[in-house]
Design a protein around this nucleic acid. Structure first.
Lengths: 109, 109
DNA sequence: TTACTATATTGCAATTTTATCATATAGTAA
DNA sequence: TTACTATATGATAAAATTGCAATATAGTAA
């Protein structure tokens, strides 16, 4: 197996592996937004948001266009929808499992 | 936005944001494997592989069954295929963009 | 029991990531 | 020019993650 290829892929996944950056991706799913709109929606610090946008952009996940003082960001990759759905599935499966554990524990008592 | 939910999601994504763990996921895509098979295929240290499997399992991405001394691991979530395809897309788009940059630089010279 | 094999766990130093605060830049307007 | 606004960048300390080496566990076989 070529580890270098997996390292490359890991870089992109790491760009998503952060709550602030995930929130940004999610709020861009319903359209282009300026930095200050994202700051308001997410409730994160401006410098955090700006840095996060930089990371997402340099990994090819979002793009930007500047108009006057404003910078508008938007998703670059439609497949991020599948991505989100995938992890929603995993989370709900995990919860289901934990619920089953809890139920079987109750059954034993 | 509910940051706690995004933290939860981030945990799962982090589980994938590592080259060793990505290799493991990828090699499980064509069927169940024992730990030592995975060690051989990936070329990683046994303790690393074991730890990685633990992380993937506790995040609900893989499952295991024990037979004698062997533990067989397999994927738990079919949507990981989409996931992989998504990032392959992003990588090839990024490369395409870099190639264009390079070409336009050549054009200027 | 002992010896062996497959897998898991622990300890740890090095590296990476994080969030915050302060500051810098670029565009607009007067 | 000065003042203002939107966004980006730098420094830094705390926290999290990494991979390796050593050790532990559990199952098998003699």
């Amino acid at each position: 197996m070529n580890k270098e290829f997996y390292k490359l892929k890991t870089e992109i996944i790491k760009a998503l592996a952060n709550p602030t950056r995930l929130m940004i991706i999610d709020c861009l799913r319903n359209g282009e937004k300026t930095v200050s709109e994202i700051v308001e929606i997410t409730g994160e610090e401006q410098s955090n948001v700006s840095k996060s946008l930089g990371i997402l952009k340099s990994n090819g996940l979002i793009k930007d266009r500047k108009i006057g003082l404003n910078v508008f960001y938007s998703l670059k990759c439609g497949c991020l929808d599948d991505f989100f759905n995938c992890f929603d599935n995993v989370i709900s499966e995990n919860l289901k499992y934990q619920q089953e554990l809890l139920d079987s524990y109750k059954g034993v008592k």
